[in-house]
């Protein structure tokens, strides 16, 4: 049995909107192996970020609410912790970096202040110790002249630098687990590659398990050990990265793979998945992907398929692989 860092089961998170209740994440299981990178892929609005926020217990209140589920981490169920216990865990054992480095740092505090604050809080360091450690961390994420940078303010750094600072900050207390929510989406392509490399590197060096959220399968191919594909608040496919890329099972995953320009042969036409992600307020009956699916069967519009194991370690949620679906 491999060591599991975090195991989330049956997470259901809903939001109260002016048009009614919306279930953004519905019965999602996530397992992160120790020191590994789990990639979570899906289109915008599929519930990737809400899953991450649910794990952090940072779902915006009072409209958002984690209704059901269990998140096991370090022998505890995170959903049962008091908010104070959870706060002490955040930053220290679980940290998170976000999509927009331009707005994720507080503009009125220096980089050093924002980094030292965590070290003092979680590690009880003195100001000198924290300063020293902050410089070390800035240096570690590949920012030159670290002594100067800690005195600077976020607006004096470029987007790539800020994301590096965020990574340094997230890793400053040696957390066991880090969530990276599309950390490279807002960056230039060249910078993206550098930041990804840095994260991969730190993952190997420090052994921090990472849940890597992205909509870019290329990034997943490069980074992830395991992959979870999400669609409309549900996990539709789950496997290790190699198996997923070689033998995608779910029609949605296949569609995603076909719509990648860099996987095309010359002269081949770029495909896209027809239709749009359904609104969470108007979910279709049965499988949420059925209106866009090219293999749609009668049962798909009636009943939601179960997540079943089609081969060891490779699960998918599709009637094509279910006996009941007639195949």
């Amino acid at each position: 049995m491999e060591d599991i860092t975090l195991k989330a089961q049956g997470i259901k998170t809903s939001f109260q909107t002016s048009e009614g209740k919306v279930v953004a994440v519905n019965d999602v299981d996530i397992t992160i192996r120790e020191g590994k990178i789990l990639g979570v892929v899906g289109e915008s609005g599929c519930g990737k970020t809400v899953t991450a926020l649910s794990i952090m217990r940072l779902v915006p209140e009072p409209n958002g609410k984690i209704e059901e589920g269990r998140i096991e981490f370090m022998g505890k169920n995170l959903l049962e912790l008091s908010s104070e216990e959870m706060r002490k865990l955040r930053g220290a054992e679980i940290s998170m970096i976000f999509q927009e480095p331009m707005t994720a740092l507080n503009p009125v505090f220096s980089i050093g202040y924002q980094m030292k604050e965590m070290l003092k809080l979680h590690r009880g360091m003195t100001d000198e110790q924290a300063t020293e450690r902050a410089i070390e961390l800035i240096d570690m994420v590949g920012i030159p002249r670290a002594e100067k940078v800690i005195k600077e303010y976020p607006h004096q750094l470029s987007g790539g630098m800020r994301q590096r600072v965020m990574i340094a900050m997230a890793l400053s207390c040696d957390p066991k687990f880090m969530i990276a929510d599309e950390p490279t989406t807002a960056l230039d392509v060249t910078i993206q590659a550098q930041v990804l490399e840095l994260m991969k590197d730190l993952n190997e060096k420090m052994g921090t398990a990472i849940m890597f959220i992205t909509h870019d399968l290329g990034v997943i191919a490069e980074m992830a050990d395991d992959v979870v594909v999400m669609y409309a608040g549900k996990v539709v496919e789950e496997s290790n990265a190699i198996s997923l890329f070689h033998e995608p099972k779910h029609p949605y995953t296949m569609g995603l793979l076909r719509s990648r320009p860099d996987m095309l042969e010359e002269g081949e036409e770029l495909q896209s998945i027809k239709g749009m992600v359904p609104s969470l307020l108007r979910m279709p009956e049965g499988c949420p992907f059925n209106p866009r699916c090219e293999h749609r069967m009668d049962i798909c519009v009636k009943e939601m398929p179960q997540l079943i194991e089609v081969k060891p370690g490779h699960k998918t949620r599709c009637w094509l692989y279910d006996d009941k679906g007639g195949k």
Partner: peptide
């Protein structure tokens, strides 16, 4: 509502410090 307040929360900063330092100064 800003992102950096969410960042502060993800860092485990105490709610009082978030409101009276991180948010108030802005």
């Amino acid at each position: 509502k800003q992102d950096y307040i969410r960042t502060a929360r993800s860092k485990g900063i105490k709610e009082k410090v978030i409101i009276y330092r991180h948010a108030l100064k802005n």
